[in-house]
Computed example of a mutant assay.
Amino acid sequence: MNQAPPFDPGIPVLTEVLREPVTAPDPQPAAPPLPDTGVLSAAEWEQLERRLHESVLQQLNTRVDFVLEQRIKDSMAAVLDQAAHELTMQIRHGLQDTIGKIVARAVQQEITHLQARKK
């Protein structure tokens, strides 16, 4: 059985949209006050619907942009941390390999030098 997702207090409900503007990362100007809905003509109802639609859409887009930006930042941080770790491990392995070869070569040269002095 499907359950509804948990309520997100950051997303305004319709009654909040009608009564007060929601504070967002980039505050938008407040919508003009709504007229008394008991005396609206059909054209005024259409205009009210259009204004409400635009206001809700604008607020949701602002919230979506903010959440998307945060998720991208979090994802990029994790990716960059992993990449830095892998790069560090590759450099460490390369350095250990190179230093090992240098030491082996130096030891071999020293042994060859000592053996040549004994003869």
Rank of each mutant, 00 (worst) to 15 (best):
E86P: 01
F66G: 00
E69V: 03
S75Q: 04
H85F: 15
L68R: 11
D65Q: 08
I111D: 14
P12I: 03
K119Y: 01
E86S: 14
P21L: 06
A42T: 14
F7W: 09
T23F: 10
T98F: 13
I72T: 04
T15I: 13
E54H: 05
E46T: 06
Q108Y: 07
P35M: 04
L114H: 03
L52Q: 02
H85Y: 15
G94V: 03
N2S: 05
V103N: 08
E110I: 02
F7Q: 12
R71L: 08
R71N: 09
V17K: 04
V22M: 04
V64A: 12
D74V: 02
M76T: 12
Q47Y: 00
L14H: 05
D65P: 00
R105G: 01
Q115F: 06
Q109Y: 12
R19D: 09
L40E: 05
F66E: 03
E20K: 04
A116I: 00
Q96T: 09
A43C: 03
P12H: 00
V13M: 15
P27M: 00
S75Y: 08
G100A: 02
L18E: 01
V13L: 15
T98Q: 14
K119I: 02
Q28N: 07
L57Q: 13
T37W: 13
L57V: 05
T15L: 11
Q109H: 14
I99D: 01
I102M: 09
S41A: 07
R50K: 08
T23R: 08
Q58G: 04
R19W: 02
L87R: 15
T62M: 09
G100D: 04
V107D: 03
N61I: 05
Q82T: 13
G38T: 07
D8C: 12
A106S: 08
L60T: 05
G38R: 14
P25Y: 04
F7A: 15
P35T: 00
A42P: 00
L48N: 05
E69G: 03
E110F: 00
A83L: 01
A77H: 09
Q3I: 12
V39G: 13
D74G: 06
I91H: 10
D36G: 03
P32Q: 09
S55Q: 15
D74L: 05
D36K: 12
A24K: 07
M89F: 11
P21R: 01
Q47V: 01
H85K: 10
Q28C: 05
D81N: 10
V13A: 13
Q96D: 10
